[in-house]
Amino acid sequence: MSATAPATYRASSSPRPQALRTDRRLTAWSWVRAALIVVVCLVLALPVVWMIAAAFKTNVQVTDPSVGLFFTPTLENFGNVLADGEIVRSLGNSALVGVVSTVLSALVAVPAAWAVGRFRMRRTGSLVLVARIVPAVSLLVPWYYIFAQLGLVGSYTVLVLSHMFVSVPLILWIMIGFFEGLPIELEEAARTDGLSAFGAFRHIALPLAAPGTATACVLAFIFSWNNFMFALILADETTKTMPVALYNFISYASTDWGGLMAASTLMIVPVLLAAVFGQKFLVAGLTAGATKG
């Protein structure tokens, strides 16, 4: 442990006491480091823990800050929220829009990412950045304008298409880097053995890229699941997604803190599960492309 912590070495005439002192400093530093890491984790995690705890409190307990993290939990809030058809339907809508938009995005983006990565089309690939830069509202205005005239506002089609605006560039971005990292020789060997170019993609590159695709799809789903702005405008009462339902909940039930916290907890549980079980892959996906400069 101690060897891993950065130490301060100084030129010294007497090596032995110096070594002793350095050792002591190293141990002291690793304790400080451990303490700092614990503090950081608490700062990041406690607000979320507080919210989840509040979801299990009665409304009296929620509004009494002296009730800490130790109390008799109740499932009453979850019962109320799940009995509310609107919340359940919104959760379903979020899942539906998330899955469909992610699958369609992968169908569009993975082949394109392969083409960009394989044929070194860096300039075409950098078009992806345009989609990251453009404010979503500036697309939402024309979408709304056009879809309203077509009478499509409120339909799942429009919601899925709008969510693809986020997930297509995201999957492209992650997968370009992934395909660039695959050795081209495998595909060339397959071609020499008689596979078509598409066959090489289908039977060689695609299976090898499965972990990357899975990571990209999970992240795309999470971003769709979290998306608020598109559904706020493009959904109607029956198609609205969970973040919009939560937002409405704030305004009409500001006193029902327990219910609000239970609904928010339902919203972030899938994401928490993904973070816990897919931590390594999701970190790789989130940081993809940032270290290449």
Partner: peptide, 29 residues
Amino acid sequence: FRGMRVVRTVLMVPLLATPVAVGILWLLI
């Protein structure tokens, strides 16, 4: 260090959590 995996998971929580839910949890706090 030991526990790096746990710390990485904790790091992911705020940034993957739904922004609207994050807003609500801070409204409570």
